[in-house]
Computed example of a mutant assay.
Amino acid sequence: MTTEPTRHRPPPVEYFPPRNTVSMDELLQTLTRVVNSLTHAEIPFAVAGGCAVYARGGPPSGHDVDIFLRRTDVAPALAVLQQNGMRRVDPPEDWLVKAYDGDILVDLIFSASGREITDELLARAPRMRIGSAHAPVVTATDLMIDKLNVLDAHRCDFVPMLQIARDLREQVGWSEVADKTESSPYARAFLGLLDDLSIASPKSS
């Protein structure tokens, strides 16, 4: 008697929550509202994530707005955004808080990949034009450190990272990136790939 081999069925579609994708114009409108709200309230911050990549000449983002700020400024920042019509959400994570501007997510991040957001990190973020907003934007080096430090066994897609690295390579201090990500085998593998592809060489920067 033969038995049919066990087949591994893929999880149902509903197992994978739909990812909210919006246009860059919609993201920039939300970003402008966030920037204006925090600026008028005199809360120090810096634009991070995909919007920062876009501001620095990288590919457009289609997901959410990321803002770096100090832990002590989280409560007043949330209050200001709520006063301007945004909806607060309390996530399970202990390194950020969230708000929604309509359907667009705004992440207020006070600890990025285990690095506390400090006055020094915010102070080195230059002011740049992003759409109609003029705001501090994290340096390309800090941006790359953050993106590499989030890589793990469940988030190890090098494809979008390669495009970002190509577009921003002349703005990045690669030796500092290597120093700040040396504990991650995924980051080391990615930096080795950049070296092999002659995109960037941490050893010579």
Rank of each mutant, 00 (worst) to 15 (best):
V34C: 05
V34K: 02
V35A: 15
V35I: 08
V35Q: 12
N36M: 11
N36V: 09
S37G: 00
S37P: 02
L38D: 04
L38C: 02
T39Y: 13
T39W: 02
H40C: 01
H40Q: 15
A41G: 04
A41V: 00
E42M: 14
E42C: 12
I43T: 08
F45C: 13
V47P: 03
V47H: 06
V47W: 08
A48N: 14
A48W: 04
C51T: 09
A52K: 05
A52Q: 06
V53G: 00
Y54D: 01
Y54M: 00
R56K: 03
G57R: 06
P59V: 07
P59D: 03
P60W: 00
P60L: 01
S61T: 07
S61A: 12
G62A: 02
D64I: 11
V65I: 15
V65D: 05
V65W: 04
D66M: 08
F68D: 05
L69C: 08
L69S: 03
R70T: 03
R71Y: 14
R71D: 12
T72S: 15
D73V: 09
V74H: 09
V74P: 05
A75G: 09
P76C: 04
P76T: 04
P76E: 02
P76W: 05
A77C: 04
L78E: 14
L78R: 12
A79F: 04
A79S: 11
V80N: 00
V80R: 12
Q82S: 07
N84Q: 15
N84A: 03
N84H: 15
G85I: 05
M86D: 11
R87P: 00
V89L: 13
V89M: 12
V89W: 08
D90T: 07
D90H: 07
P91H: 06
P91L: 00
P92F: 09
E93D: 06
D94N: 10
W95V: 04
W95Y: 11
W95H: 13
L96D: 07
V97F: 11
V97R: 10
K98E: 13
K98A: 07
A99D: 03
Y100K: 04
D101G: 14
G102D: 11
G102M: 04
D103L: 11
I104V: 15
I104S: 02
I104N: 05
I104K: 04
V106G: 07
V106P: 02
D107W: 02
D107A: 00
L108K: 10
L108S: 09
S111Q: 14
A112G: 01
S113R: 04
S113P: 00
G114S: 07
G114E: 02
E116L: 11
I117C: 06
E120A: 15
L121T: 15
L122D: 09
L122N: 08
R124L: 05
R124W: 05
R124Y: 02
R124N: 14
A125G: 05
A125L: 10
A125Q: 08
R127H: 12
M128W: 07
I130H: 08
G131Y: 05
A135T: 14
A135D: 08
V137K: 07
V138Q: 15
V138R: 14
T139I: 10
A140T: 10
D142T: 10
L143H: 12
M144K: 11
M144E: 10
M144D: 06
